[in-house]
Amino acid sequence: MNFQPTTLNERVDSLDILRGFSLLGILLVNMFAFYLPMPHIDLGNWFTEAKDIIWHQTLDIYVQSSFYPLFSMLFGYGLAMQFMKAERTGISFYKFAPKRLVILLIIGLMHAFFIWWGDILTMYAFCGFFLILFLRFGSGWLLTFGFVINGIMQLFFIGIFALSGMANMEIEEQAVDITMINNAISAYGIGSWTDAFLQRLDDLSLQMGIAMWISSLLTILPYMLIGAAFAKWRLIERGKELKGFWITLTVICLALGLFIKSTPFLFTRTYLLDYLKVYVGGPILSIGYIGVVVCLCMIPVIPKLLKPLAKAGRMSLTLYLMQSIICTLIFYNFGFGLYGEVDVQMGTLIAIGIFVIQVIIAELWFIKFKQGPIELLVKKLTYR
């Protein structure tokens, strides 16, 4: 018996809608890194115009740090669904899962080195190797592991803030490396593809440093484990059955997440509040967003209305890579050369415009094909 990937009839609409929704959130966050010299600046202190500050703060509250946990949970949810399907069919999950992760890792490395330094696929593949070691455990254990691993990081940093007296200290403007900033502006803004490639290697040395790999096990893996626990409970598929649970969870997580993420702007921006905004408020809000989609999908007409978003979610890997190609062509000098030339509002509108075009592309693509091109490639390489 051959193990097969998920067929069209087996797909869960709300999961695909969530993936499509995540693509928009990820692009809105990544947009800063396409037209500004990140990771060499602090966005919190970079903008000086009032309009830019307001737009950035709005994105910081509603988008930043809430979509990588969401996508991590979806990643864990999907992998756990594959694991349970393998158990039902009597096929060893571990014959194909590591291979799929290796393929994802290779695609991520190619993306990082040749297209854009801010790739996240490599980190997801890396954490995925640890995730599959946990999938034999039940949902309760998976949830516990997720909270414990993330809790270790929370206790460590909050403990440092408390012991050092930094908790109530106002965040000061951080020193920046002017040379690295100028190098990035020159390479991406006025340089050739080769200049951009060499600068990309420098940026990757920061993005993929040892600290980032270790950090991913504390900030990405826990949400994958939580997503896997949700999958084993089939929380999304059983949305209507668990209506009360989802409505309660959604209201609490939206209110609490938005409050925590707003505190640095409502009060003084201290080190503790800024940390809580990113690493506590962000993940809580992401669960609220999941709940919003699950609750909306309980209304019969909504999944039909959001079908285009679901189709985008079905080819999320292809569209994620496409976003990087489009944005580098828009902003880098070997394309339209708009690097550093747009404000936050324009960058946001460009991101929304790109996403709308991608939704239309997905709609047209699935008229003729059943899978996205990169998804089909991964399928062929994994399952043959």
Results as ranks from 00 to 15, higher is better:
I149V: 11
N333H: 09
A229M: 02
M180C: 12
T263K: 01
A231G: 03
L217D: 05
V294W: 00
L218N: 08
Q323S: 05
L305Y: 10
I103C: 07
C327Y: 04
T144C: 13
L70N: 01
D343A: 08
A162V: 14
I299E: 11
L36K: 03
A50S: 13
I160Q: 11
I330D: 04
K243A: 04
G347Q: 03
W141I: 15
M169D: 15
E241S: 09
P303W: 01
Q64L: 13
S66L: 02
G282E: 03
T7V: 14
V344W: 02
G76M: 01
G189Y: 04
I325Y: 10
A167R: 01
Y68F: 11
I61M: 06
N45Y: 12
Q207I: 14
W233L: 10
G288R: 01
L377T: 05
G20R: 00
G239C: 05
L285H: 05
L254R: 01
T7Q: 14
G25M: 01
D60Q: 12
D119T: 09
L142M: 06
M322Q: 08
L133H: 09
K99T: 10
Y124W: 08
K277Q: 15
E341Y: 10
L258Y: 13
I115C: 09
D343G: 10
P283F: 04
A86R: 02
R200H: 11
F157T: 14
W116S: 11
T268E: 10
G25Q: 00
I26T: 06
Q207S: 15
R384K: 14
Q371R: 13
V342F: 03
G372A: 07
G151V: 09
T144P: 08
H40I: 14
A125W: 03
G335M: 04
Y279L: 12
C327S: 07
E49G: 14
S14K: 00
R100C: 06
G189I: 06
L28Y: 01
N183H: 12
L377Q: 08
T382I: 07
G335P: 04
R100S: 03
T263V: 11
P308E: 00
E237I: 06
I152P: 05
L217A: 05
S262Y: 05
R314I: 11
G337L: 01
G291I: 00
A211D: 15
Q154C: 10
T318P: 05
